Simulated scan of single mutants.
Amino acid sequence: MQGALLTVLASAVAAAARAAQQPLEPVDGIAQDTYNELHRFAQYSSAVYQPLCPRPLGNALVESFSNILTHVHGFVARDDARRELVVAFRGSQQLSDMVTDANLMLVPLALHGIPPETTSDAEIHAGFLIAYNSVCNMVVSAVREELDVYPDYSVVAVGHSMGGALASIASLSLKYHIPSAAVRLFTYGMLYATGNAGFADLMHDMIGDANMYRARNIDGVSTLVPESLGYRHHATEYWQHAEPPDSSTVRQCEGQEDPECSKSILSTGINTAHFVYFGQMMTVDATLCL
């Protein structure tokens, strides 16, 4: 009897050891509150494409910003119910935006007002850096003035496609200039990765993986630029890998480049999925500004 019991125990221990050695299966599904936020900030990322947006999602428009040379456009909105400032950047829409997108050279992260030695290991897409720096002072000034009046409000940077890349840079810029600000980042179909591994690590250190939501569906844009050029995505990817969009069809991924998430599929380039995120059609919904 004792021998049989020992045999059973030995088998159980061996099975547990084998299970521990097996990689965990990716877990699908995110909390409904998280899904609701992904949907909400997708709406802001769509609203910013409108030429005029007097009431983003029914909230107060603090300031619109733009640059006539780079054609960067966005707004700062204030949601008093949620005690939140939303900084939204428009994605590619004009020929000049395509020129910005194509400026793929990685260059040192030289942000206005930040000492170069602070970002010594970080390199960034040259076109995106020029584009963000063209509106940096306006963005930082508008947010700082609002936080002076509403110091307990959080800041959320958002954007779709190229706008997502600009929002990523803005989140770092705002955190440097206003260290006390609670900053989060939501991007959708972000064009390429924004920078190199040093940039991704800097985002991890300054913003924190738990405060970054890099949303992607079966959109092929995010992987158009190969890693061989030195690019690396920052955390944290939220991959909607099946239809219809729902909290159960989104996976919260691990680290910066999770091989079980969107990296596991081949890039198809710009496709129809690039323009619809969490049920929100990008660029065309003027009702989001009323």
Results as ranks from 00 to 15, higher is better:
113 G>N: 06
75 F>W: 12
125 H>W: 05
66 S>Q: 05
89 F>T: 01
137 N>W: 02
144 R>K: 12
104 L>Q: 05
78 R>F: 04
126 A>V: 10
85 L>F: 14
53 C>N: 04
98 M>N: 13
95 L>E: 15
104 L>R: 03
115 P>K: 04
63 E>C: 02
116 P>D: 15
60 A>K: 14
86 V>M: 14
75 F>T: 04
66 S>W: 11
124 I>S: 01
66 S>G: 03
123 E>Q: 11
50 Q>K: 12
73 H>Q: 11
72 V>I: 00
127 G>M: 02
110 A>K: 13
63 E>L: 07
121 D>Y: 14
84 E>H: 08
78 R>S: 06
50 Q>E: 13
92 S>A: 10
88 A>I: 01
115 P>Y: 01
110 A>M: 12
106 L>V: 07
98 M>Q: 14
117 E>G: 02
109 L>K: 10
82 R>Q: 13
132 Y>D: 06
64 S>N: 15
93 Q>W: 09
118 T>W: 09
117 E>Q: 11
120 S>A: 10
120 S>G: 01
132 Y>G: 10
127 G>Y: 03
111 L>W: 02
63 E>Q: 10
53 C>L: 02
98 M>F: 12
101 D>H: 01
114 I>Y: 00
53 C>M: 06
88 A>N: 08
94 Q>T: 15
98 M>S: 15
113 G>P: 04
83 R>Y: 07
83 R>V: 06
57 L>T: 08
79 D>F: 12
137 N>A: 08
108 P>W: 04
56 P>M: 03
143 V>R: 13
82 R>D: 14
106 L>I: 02
107 V>E: 10
96 S>Y: 01
139 V>G: 09
74 G>T: 01
65 F>T: 00
83 R>W: 04
138 M>G: 08
120 S>R: 15
92 S>H: 03
84 E>K: 08
130 I>V: 02
116 P>S: 11
118 T>I: 10
81 A>W: 04
90 R>V: 02
122 A>P: 02
118 T>H: 05
60 A>C: 06
134 S>R: 00
48 V>T: 12
71 H>D: 15
72 V>E: 13
130 I>F: 00
59 N>S: 08
122 A>Y: 09
94 Q>M: 10
131 A>H: 00
90 R>L: 07
122 A>G: 06
113 G>R: 07
